[in-house]
């Protein structure tokens, strides 16, 4: 990997870190509402994985999706605007934090029902196999999603039909607040072994290790050797979401994992040690990242809310030809709609 690529990995991880810290601030200021699941600590996984895939490989992830969107090339502006619920966000304010998407970049979205997106990802891989596009699908998930029925149904089917998919567990060792040993009966790789699936355990705090593992996995899947299962062991520094008081994890445990920080480690052990960058250069990168996120916040804050008239857009991709009166289609009076005596809706 050349210097520019390594620097780029560093910058992306740092961008995610700074973005998430500022998003937490914006949440505290009530600029962001609902659930906000931050990616701090897990940056090496999204950045390492995305850098190992082709631009048209498919990516499907769960609700902890800001890092994935940024790593896939969504702008900090579009992601922050989405968190603010603005028209300029990745879904124009429809989906919010948990449902970022950018299909032009083959980023098929964040999904917020635990385990619900696994079958979708297998379906994308089946389509790629059927249409012979040569694309690999990467499906990331938390360790907490590996006990629900869709996990087992998806792994069984993927193996059965030999589809080109990478199941990437971002194993941060907690299903919301429930520790791995409380939610799972067997070690993670045993679950993959149950479906005779090629599997590896990787250090999810090391961006180069993740990158190489996903490269190997993608190569396997692309050449027709079927699904691959990766257990990337990691840790999230913050609670499950901003609503989590994070009382169940010890300070010592969190501190221990922070000592293995993927960004600091990468800077110290790779960039500085190999003299690929000077401390001044890294400081300059931090400065540019901070400016980018500051600009994203200003952009989001100054962006318009989505227009009320857009509320019904894309209810259907193919609207029915004549929209007669229907309980489901009458526009509420506050949008200026009414029902006329002849029953047509206006």
């Amino acid at each position: 990997m050349d210097r520019d690529t390594l620097i780029s990995l560093y910058r992306q991880m740092l961008l995610i870190r700074v973005f998430e810290d500022r998003a937490a601030e914006m949440y505290a200021k009530a600029k962001i509402a609902g659930f906000l699941h931050l990616y701090n600590g897990q940056e090496a996984i999204a950045v390492g994985a995305v850098s190992a895939l082709a631009p048209d490989d498919e990516i499907v992830v769960n609700y902890r999706d800001h890092g994935w969107a940024l790593a896939r090339g969504c702008t900090a502006r579009a992601v922050m605007a989405e968190l603010f619920g603005r028209a300029t966000g990745t879904t124009g304010g429809r989906g919010g934090s948990m449902h970022l998407v950018d299909v032009k970049r083959h980023f098929w979205g964040g999904y917020a029902i635990v385990g619900g997106h696994l079958p979708l990802a297998v379906g994308l891989a089946v389509a790629a196999q059927y249409l012979k596009t040569g694309r690999v699908t990467l499906c990331s998930m938390g360790d907490g999603s590996t006990n629900i029925g869709t996990f087992h149904a998806a792994l069984n089917w993927a193996k059965l039909w030999n589809v080109p998919i990478i199941f990437l567990v971002e194993n941060n060792q907690y299903a919301m607040g429930t520790a791995y040993e409380v939610h799972s009966a067997v070690p993670m790789l045993t679950k993959a072994a149950g479906y005779d699936m090629y599997a590896e355990e990787v250090d999810g705090m090391d961006v180069l290790v993740v990158h190489e593992a996903v490269c190997r996995a993608a190569e396997r899947a692309r050449r027709g050797d079927g699904p691959v299962f990766l257990n990337a062991v990691t840790y999230r520094y913050r609670g499950h979401s901003m609503a989590d008081p994070d009382v169940q994890r010890s300070k010592e445990e969190i501190a221990e994992w922070r000592r293995r920080d993927p960004i600091t480690r990468f800077a110290d052990e790779v960039l500085l040690k190999r003299e690929l960058a000077t401390p001044e250069e890294l400081a300059a990168i931090r400065k540019s990242v901070e400016a980018e996120v500051e600009d994203a916040i200003e952009f989001a804050d100054n962006s318009p809310e989505p227009p009320l008239e857009s509320l019904y857009d894309y209810i259907y991709m193919q609207p029915v030809s004549h929209m007669q009166i229907s309980g489901s289609l009458i526009r509420p009076p506050k949008l200026g709609g009414r029902v006329s005596p002849n029953g047509k809706h206006h």
């Binding site: 498919e58 499907v60 098929w108 619900g116 696994l118 079958p119 979708l120 990802a121 297998v122 379906g123 994308l124 891989a125 089946v126 389509a127 790629a128 059927y130 249409l131 029925g149 869709t150 149904a153 998806a154 069984n156 089917w157 059965l160």
Partner: peptide
Amino acid sequence: DTPIAEEAIIGIGIGAAMGGLRT
């Protein structure tokens, strides 16, 4: 033929439809 796993039949049907098939 598929496994008896309706959540997968429909979920994988959705994903394949997203990916360009008509399922």
